[in-house]
């Protein structure tokens, strides 16, 4: 399975992360996205007329949408990540997969503007990003009330992988995550999954430093 990949792309990272979490090996084909703009060159435009990455190739299957790639990887290697055991859960996963495109268009575009000098209306992008974060925060709070730590279930699904990267990288675009305690908790839960991998700007969880021990008479 060949992934046309860019190390700094959160969308490519979704696919790398999914593969790592379920133990699938990808054949990585690096794309000179910046500064070379190779994704807009003839070879990749022939493969994906949208001119975007990631692109996943497996035999004669060519996928150009990261959500479809997550579905494909999970269906092949770890179907429990599809979260399709009930009608409600199936729909919820689909809801978050679609929602994840709003994160790309807002927080992702804000990040490209701030980091790689892409044109864009930064104030509007941040505003849309914040609206999406508030919706996600509300969704996660409801999940907590249901006793579930992840977006669609008490166990992680492709919905979490689809939403996590652009959310975790929001500060790269100048959008703070400080106001969202449920998102921060969820981010910790995702980062503590077995097989989790990092990307630049998304750090692994470091061991918590031991709690300070107060001796009698101190404080």
């Amino acid at each position: 399975m060949k992934l046309y990949d860019y190390a700094l792309s959160p969308s490519c990272y979704k696919v790398r992360l999914m593969a790592a979490l379920i133990g699938v090996t990808l054949d990585i084909r690096p794309v000179d996205f910046h500064p070379g703009c190779e994704h807009r060159g003839p070879e990749l435009m022939a493969l994906n007329p949208a001119g975007s990455i990631p692109i996943l190739e497996d035999g004669d299957l060519v996928l150009t949408e990261s959500s479809a790639m997550l579905v494909y990887l999970a269906a092949k290697a770890a179907p429990q990540w599809l979260g399709n055991d009930t009608a409600g859960r199936t729909a919820r996963v689909q809801q978050w997969l679609s929602f994840s495109h709003r994160l790309t268009a807002s927080l992702g575009a804000a990040r490209l503007h701030e980091m790689l000098l892409r044109p864009g209306n930064i104030a509007a992008l941040r505003e849309q990003g914040i609206a999406a974060l508030r919706e996600l925060e509300a969704g996660l709070v409801e999940q907590h009330i249901r006793g579930q730590r992840f977006l669609a279930s008490d166990r992680p699904t492709i919905a979490d992988v689809a939403c996590f990267p652009y959310v975790a990288l929001a500060p790269d675009g100048g959008v703070s995550l400080d106001p969202y305690p449920a998102i921060r908790l969820w981010s910790r839960a995702v980062r503590s999954l077995e097989g989790f991998i990092e990307m630049p700007g998304i750090h692994r969880l470091h061991e918590l430093t031991p709690a300070p021990v107060l001796k009698v008479g101190e404080a």
């Binding site: 860019y6 190390a7 700094l8 690096p30 794309v31 000179d32 910046h34 500064p35 070379g36 190779e38 980091m115 500060p171 790269d172 630049p200 700007g201």
Partner: peptide, 22 residues
């Protein structure tokens, strides 16, 4: 090493610094 890999190696390192710098 292919040129793109060299670029990505250095970009990865620099963007790791970026969030610290900001």
């Amino acid at each position: 090493t292919p040129m793109t890999d060299l670029i990505h190696f250095q970009q990865t390192i620099f963007v790791q610094d970026r969030s610290i710098l900001e």
